[in-house]
């Protein structure tokens, strides 16, 4: 094996490892929260700064809470509390939705575990 052969093998290994990281990296912790009300994005905030946001929609007020690198739907109109049941959103792609109030709370990051979630 020549030095050139070794170089080619090394490059091939690096290529395979790089592809693995590029294609298969699991979900990373989210860094931002995006809040959509109706058809409009109304806020995009970092998750490392604690704060509370009140979003007014057609059914009332949805409260978004940001703390400890996560966000959650702390309160929202809707008799079943579906928005609140989503809990703390930490991984990129996690979301909470209030359909009656037309509010989407989603956290964003570099990598998502799944391209889409079926339910």
């Amino acid at each position: 094996m020549t030095r050139a052969d070794g170089l080619v093998i090394l490059l091939a290994i690096l290529l395979v490892m790089g592809s693995y990281v590029w294609l298969w990296t699991p979900a990373t912790p989210a860094t931002q929260v995006r809040v959509v009300a109706g058809d409009r994005e109304i806020a995009r905030l970092p998750l490392d700064q604690p704060r509370q946001l009140e979003v007014t929609g057609p059914a009332g007020i949805t409260v978004v809470e940001i703390r400890d690198g996560a966000a959650r739907c702390a309160a929202s109109p809707g008799s079943q509390g579906i928005c609140q049941q989503a809990g703390w959103l930490r991984q990129a792609g996690d979301m909470a939705v209030s359909l009656p109030n037309r509010v989407i709370i989603e956290v964003l990051g570099d990598e998502w575990a799944f391209d889409s979630v079926n339910y």
Partner: peptide, 24 residues
């Protein structure tokens, strides 16, 4: 991928891999 209320239809593929779908 077009996902409406959790149900989805996909076409094609993102580059050299398949679409990854999580089932809740």
């Amino acid at each position: 991928i077009l996902n409406a209320g959790g149900d989805l239809l996909a076409i094609g593929r993102p580059g050299n891999r398949s679409w990854r779908i999580g089932v809740r």
